[in-house]
Design a protein around this nucleic acid. Structure first.
Lengths: 188, 188
DNA sequence: ACCTGAACACCGTTCAAGT
DNA sequence: ACCTGAACACCGTTCAAGT
């Protein structure tokens, strides 16, 4: 039974590797099988078809992302409680990732697209984001009266920023400045 | 030569139809050829490979989107110049589209993902968004001192909203209220 | 329960050939 | 310039069979 868990992990890791390097379009059951050292048919014994493999992979991937968010949030709150302004700046610097720079953004891109065609994936993606919002609300409630409004501003903004950051008239520094100003103005 | 233009349009329309209904993952050269009434090899005469077909399709699709944006903006500015607040509300209602509701969002989703793997598509996407930002700056400059800041806020927000709208703690109405308040506060 | 290999219909791309 | 059809390697899925 431990061996089986290992096998499954190997398969999901192999899938993530191919997905982030080559995209969903170039991912095949045969490639995954090869990278994970199984025969095609044996891979299909564990995951009956490609859809099921994708669903399992996305869930597995999200779990690791959850851990990362938790760590980052803990790191932020652990720091010797700076001013609200400094904390907001750090948070924004964390959230506003320039698109295409990281494997992570590539993975999310692939996952979004896949989820728009698959109901079960869509549910998994929504569950992840809802949890992510809750984390943020918890963090922000330490300094704000209306964390839900701030989260409703920050989360979509960060997602969109990853996509269109390189066409915006303002650079990242100025944008963070603006966003901090806006959020602080909400508290009055 | 007119006949050729027609042929190309048929091909690109067929590609858009399949792309928005079934996704890039289920789009094949053979399906496009069938829907556009050509043989596979003849389709490949017009578009040597799938990549070139996708690039041409995205450019063609963006042109029609440009026209739509232009029309919408004209419609907004034509209306008997209301207060800044009302105009902002209308603009936000236009920009904040709930994800998965429209073929358009599905198309953009597919295009984003494809463009992250293809340099030429990426360039086309950037050109489209840059132009889109310019339109918005033009519109917003009629009532704001700092249209570039507002565009840098609105454009990413609208893109991200299409993705995560259904997990946000605030509903659309409250979000629009919040965004209008924020933008108005920028003018002081 | 875990694993194999052959077979099927489909895919993108190449190529030699026709008009 | 426009179009055809065969061939190639690859794909997801099914299935009958082994341990």
């Amino acid at each position: 039974m431990d061996r089986k868990k290992e096998r499954l992990n190997e398969i999901l890791q192999a899938t993530i590797t191919i997905l982030s390097k080559e995209g969903a379009e170039n991912l095949s059951m045969r490639k995954v099988a090869k990278l994970a050292n199984l025969s095609l048919s044996n891979l299909q014994y564990y995951y009956r078809d490609k859809d099921l493999l994708m669903i399992a992979t996305v869930k597995y991937y999200f779990e690791s992302c959850q851990d990362e968010v938790t760590d980052a949030v803990n790191l932020l709150s652990a720091q010797s409680t700076p001013s609200t302004e400094v904390l907001l700046e750090k948070l924004l610097n964390m959230l506003l990732v320039v698109g295409k720079s990281s494997d992570k953004i590539m993975m999310f891109q692939e996952i979004w697209t896949l989820s728009s065609r698959n109901k079960e994936l869509e549910t998994a993606v929504e569950a992840y984001y809802k949890n992510y919002c809750l984390w943020l609300i918890g963090l922000i409630s330490s300094f704000s009266r209306d964390p839900e409004a701030i989260v409703s501003l920050l989360v979509p903004y960060a997602e969109g920023y990853a996509i269109v950051s390189n066409v915006l008239p303002l650079n990242k520094e100025k944008i963070i400045q603006m966003m901090v100003g806006l959020i602080l103005s909400m508290e009055k």
